[in-house]
């Protein structure tokens, strides 16, 4: 089951499906290319959680600001980042978003309000809260969104920032992607209360739990929170219950202590399949449209790979560029 369709035109709803599929296909390719040694270091896949990024970002405008986590591809794509420059960054090339300085964990695009994926759990929460303060000082109705995981909700910056945002009535939306696992450790082992959203009560702000695999439910919760933030009424904490399908990283041979039955149960609630079924029921999607969508995405990803392979690797002397801004 998925919640009833929101008040969005059919083409926007199809665009949500297309973005979710783009995230998934992008990461499937990234995982393959990582396994093939073309992508280095570490890659964290967002597959299974696509409805969160897409649902939230559908409620935003281009100038609204977001911050992401080490598992950041989905937020980048949902905010409108360029696949070519994303893939080129994963490939460590000059044409990448970070000129090959950041890699998978650090993609940012400040032109679209994407303030960066961040490799430190809870590290981005203060930064994006500062973007919320900036939006408040700008006075143009902008909002800022902090994406973070259940692990981050146990760290100090989460609590510090919720208190500050509530006190200052900052136009913030705190989106906890509760995928039940912080790296190799279960939320059941580390959370005093199972619902992160309940922590909002301590700061006197709304805290809502939504089905994070239901993109319309996420969108509607985000839309409510964004309206509240734009109206100057302060922050909201949205907890999206979701699950990552893959291990913590794509590194081969790492332990994945999750119970097979737990993983299997979540695979049955594929956010993309749920949305697809809903759109078909609404008469807004058929096989031909879906095939065309998949074909377009496949083309875009092939193009991103070709773009990346054509981009030169950085020159060694570029290692000393951009330590300081001019």
């Amino acid at each position: 089951m998925i919640s009833l369709s929101p008040n969005l035109p059919p083409e926007r709803q199809r665009a949500m499906l297309q973005q979710m599929l783009t995230i998934r296909r992008f990461e499937e390719r990234a995982s393959d290319d990582y396994g093939a040694g073309k992508i280095h270091g570490v890659v964290h896949c967002y597959i299974g959680e696509e409805a969160v990024a897409v649902g939230v970002c559908t409620a935003l405008t281009r100038t609204d600001r977001i911050i992401s986590t080490h598992r950041g591809h989905g937020h980048c794509i949902a905010k409108g980042a360029d696949l070519n420059r994303m893939m080129a960054e994963l490939y460590g090339r000059q044409a990448g978003y970070c000129k090959g300085k950041g890699g998978s964990m650090h993609i940012a695009d400040f032109d679209i309000g994407m303030l960066g994926a961040n490799g430190i759990v809870a590290g981005g929460i203060p930064i994006v809260t500062g973007a919320g303060l900036a939006a408040q000082m700008e006075g143009k109705g902008g909002v800022a969104v902090s994406f973070f995981g259940d692990g981050a909700s146990n760290a100090g910056p989460f609590h510090e920032c919720l208190n500050i945002a509530a006190t200052m009535k900052l136009p913030m939306i705190y989106v906890c992607e509760n995928n039940l696992w912080a790296a190799q450790t279960s939320a059941a082992q580390t959370h005093a209360e199972i619902d992160v959203a309940g922590r909002a009560a301590g700061y006197g702000i709304p805290g809502v739990v939504v089905d994070g695999n239901d993109v319309f439910a996420v969108y509607q919760a985000a839309n409510t929170a964004v309206a509240r933030a734009r109206a100057g009424e302060g922050p909201t904490l949205i907890e999206c219950k979701t699950y990552r399908w893959r291990a913590h990283t794509e590194r081969k041979g790492q332990p994945d202590p999750r119970d097979k039955a737990e993983v299997e149960a979540w695979l049955q609630r594929d956010p993309i399949a749920l949305l697809e079924r809903q759109l078909r029921q609404q008469g807004e999607l058929d096989d031909a449209v879906l095939r065309a969508m998949e074909s377009e995405i496949a083309g875009a990803i092939e193009a991103a790979v070709a773009f990346s392979e054509a981009s030169p690797v950085p020159l060694p002397e570029q290692a000393t560029d951009d330590v300081f801004a001019a």
Partner: peptide, 19 residues
């Protein structure tokens, strides 16, 4: 508030937003 981690990070976010 006396929450230097938050304050420092908020400075970074505000700086990256044009302040």
């Amino acid at each position: 508030p006396i929450a230097e981690s938050a304050i420092t990070g908020m400075g970074i976010g505000a700086a990256g937003s044009g302040f």
